[in-house]
Amino acid sequence: MNISRKKHLTKNKTTFQYIKSDMQLYIMLLPFLLFYIIFVYKPMWGLQAAFRDYNMFKGMAESPWVGLDNFNAVFKSPYFGRILRNTLLISTYSLLFSFPMPIILALLLNEVRSTKYKSFIQTCTYLPHFISTVVVAGMVTSFLAPSTGIVNIILSKLGFEKIYFLSKPEYFRTIFITQGIWQGAGYSSIVYIAALSGIDMALYEAAKIDGCGRWKQTLHITLPGLLPTIVMIFIINVGNILNVGYEKIILLYQPATYETADVISTYVYRMGIENADYGISTAIGLFNSVVGFIFVFTANTLSNKINGMGLW
């Protein structure tokens, strides 16, 4: 009787008692929460600059509300169409050209029989991921330099004219996508390689008994096995369609190539940080974040429906 009563009591601990017994955990959590509050959520409060005529000296509360004026100015700006188009085009080309590369690489690596050779290739192809944006941009800039860059040396040896690639808008996207593949394809293949190793070997054995060759096994076992991963990564990419890597674009573009290279985030950088036009730049940033969030959310919901799995 006594025991069961005690049990009954502990079951009905109040919320306060729970919190009290886990006090140490909450204290531990404090620095972590402070980080998110101060450096992640507090800036969100600053998003109201998008709806104010923000003045640094007056401070946020004293700057007058202007409603949607900043957004009107953004949408009417002649640059808005350009940066939106460039952002979407660069993302779309990435989806078309960069996205399949790690999948192909993983499939090819899967066919290698010698584990040593396989891990050698993996070691080589993962390496560029760990090199800084600045070094990669430096490599691109100097390799494409008009007369001493290695690309132009080769072109002139082959009898073509030398081209100053980085000053020509028509080459920018190709350059950007290519260096992205060079730097990222190997590393991105990891997740597919892991998915491949998770496919049940018994399936292959069964296929062999039924007389399927390697090609048929790839088509009917490997690819279907990879599909959930492919769909998930595709969704992440679609969700991030508005987030083009501005850190590298800032290093590679120049006024002559803005026409094809200037994306939303680089425009925000120039307006906000360089020109200190906080109202307008916050408004574009907010537009970007909200639309981006809607993209991720929709993509995830779709994936849950189609694939039975999503990001959350």
């Binding site: 959590l29 929460l33 998110y36 101060i38 450096f39 992640v40 959520y41 507090k42 800036p43 969100m44 600053g46 998003l47 600059a49 640094m56 969700g239 985030s265 925000v268 950088y269 906000g272 940080i273 906080y278 730049s281 916050t282 940033g285 907010l286 970007n288 974040s289 909200v290 981006g292 969030f293 991720v296 959310f297 959350w312």
Partner: peptide, 24 residues
């Protein structure tokens, strides 16, 4: 609720300019 609020920041952030002003 804490987990949701933390993971939410992977998909939505204030962006470059508010973050910069926050530091400032």
């Amino acid at each position: 609720i804490i987990n949701v609020l933390v993971v939410f920041t992977m998909w939505f952030s204030a962006g470059m300019v508010p973050a910069y002003l926050n530091f400032k």
